[in-house]
């Protein structure tokens, strides 16, 4: 499919999935965010090749769709690793030494924020508060929160994650 932003094309199966999600959400009031969530939940990211069909279905311009996708930290326009590790950078965790933990994690994974390890296992993201502030420092691996973390516990989490798909 032609796209003004990207030369990326989606394979037919993914495109069908996206079209089905568009059909499912397009009549909701304020449909765009729920739709983008469903696409990212379904295929792991929001490919730029989706912008055109979304814009047509919701009577928006491609630029508006692009604007929304890129405004929100949660949405990614490229595939992530198999697991997403989010490290809390907010004040409560800083008060409990998260900066050091953050530096250790980055150096042990050999990546910075918004990057994925070479084996494709882990994408590292910063997060500003997980609501686990009585158990700082906190982080989140996929949808699970972990509290009172230290480098050793994180190393275990990471090796567990690497061992799973």
């Amino acid at each position: 499919m032609a796209n003004v932003l990207s030369t990326e094309t989606l394979d037919a199966e993914v495109l069908d999935k996206v079209q089905a999600l568009i059909a499912q959400h397009k009549d909701m009031p304020g449909a765009l965010l729920p739709l983008l969530h469903s696409i990212q939940d379904g295929i792991g990211y929001v490919p730029e090749a989706c912008y055109l069909p979304i814009s047509k279905a919701l009577a928006l311009s491609v630029a508006e769709v692009h604007g929304v996708v890129t405004f929100y930290h949660h949405f990614r326009s490229h595939p992530a690793g198999r697991h997403i590790l989010q490290i809390c950078r907010a004040e409560s965790c800083q008060a409990m030494g998260s900066e050091k933990l953050e530096a250790n994690i980055k150096s042990s994974l050999g990546i910075d924020y918004h990057q994925t390890t070479a084996d494709g296992a882990i994408t590292l993201e910063p997060v500003y508060c997980l609501g686990n502030c009585a158990c700082s420092p906190a982080l989140m691996m996929d949808d699970e929160v972990y509290g009172r973390m230290n480098s050793q516990k994180v190393a275990e989490l990471i090796s567990d994650a690497r061992a799973t798909s």
Binding site: A90, C129, G131, A134
Partner: peptide, 11 residues
């Protein structure tokens, strides 16, 4: 959208 660090009562 409880985003303030140090808060978790909404959660």
């Amino acid at each position: 959208d409880e985003g303030d660090s140090g808060t978790y009562s909404d959660r």
